[in-house]
């Protein structure tokens, strides 16, 4: 319930109506949306019980590693039940054709694989918020100073997931494990996304805000 309460308000993409439709416009809209999402996700992280007790460098290391996983998991959850469309925001939904035009077809396919996985699992909102916190705590940064503290955070979130699943699905003893087993695909997809946006950044044709750039550079 704490994580449900900490879940950020929805953000709108607000594509610039003055710009003609193009791949540049689509990517500009997504990068701007991502930058604003990152600000609220950092605020969200601080509300995860135990996160703020980590040292500031360790909080930074986890976020620098997991930020794209968090962004993608939010898109995936919004897209559940939307036939083959990615809901980046309520006012910004992309189908395969639009993704292709934006040069995002590989990413579209990868994210859709996650959407299908969670659709077949019938992911609950409670499980989603817990899994998202686990993705952050499980970021596997190489720069963690206090592993014991991070492991304590992982353990408490894992316990929360198990408890939650045992209440929601008492008949299914495998469910927590099945949810955890979706995380490698999330990490793989996030790595693809970071690589893709690093290439776009190199290209220099799409304006990007500072926080988004800063986090992309953390992976460079």
């Amino acid at each position: 319930s704490h994580l449900l309460g900490a879940e950020p308000e929805k953000i709108y993409a607000m594509p610039d109506p003055a710009l003609p439709d193009s791949d540049i416009k689509a990517l500009t809209t997504l990068c701007d949306l991502a930058d604003r999402e990152l600000v609220v996700n950092i605020g969200w992280a601080k509300h995860i019980p135990g996160f703020s007790s980590l040292s500031l460098p360790d909080q930074m290391s986890l976020l620098q590693s997991a930020w794209m996983e968090i962004l993608i998991l939010r898109v995936v959850f919004r897209s559940l039940g939307c036939e083959d469309q990615l809901v980046f925001a309520e006012d910004y939904v992309m189908n395969e054709e639009q993704a292709k035009l934006a040069g995002l077809q590989d990413l579209y396919t990868a994210i859709l694989q996650l959407v299908r996985k969670y659709t077949s699992i019938k992911l609950h909102r409670e499980e989603f918020v817990t899994l998202k916190a686990i993705a952050l705590a499980n970021a596997d940064s190489m720069h963690i100073e206090d592993w014991v503290a991070v492991q304590r955070l992982q353990d408490s979130l894992h316990a929360a997931l198990q408890e939650l699943v045992s209440v929601l699905h008492p008949e299914d003893g495998q469910r927590a494990g099945r949810l955890i087993m979706t995380l490698p695909l999330l990490r793989q997809t996030a790595a693809k996304a970071v690589q893709h946006f690093c290439n776009i950044k190199q290209d220099g044709r799409v304006p990007m805000h500072k926080l988004f750039l800063e986090l992309l550079e953390a992976h460079a």
Binding site: V39, I42, G43, K46, H47, L56, P57, Q59, M60, L63, Q64, K210, L211, E214, L215, E217, A218
Partner: peptide, 15 residues
């Protein structure tokens, strides 16, 4: 750490 000043600042701000 110098390179990550916005993240640093956002984490330090109380929300």
């Amino acid at each position: 750490k110098e390179k990550h000043k916005i993240l640093h600042r956002l984490l330090q701000n109380s929300t």
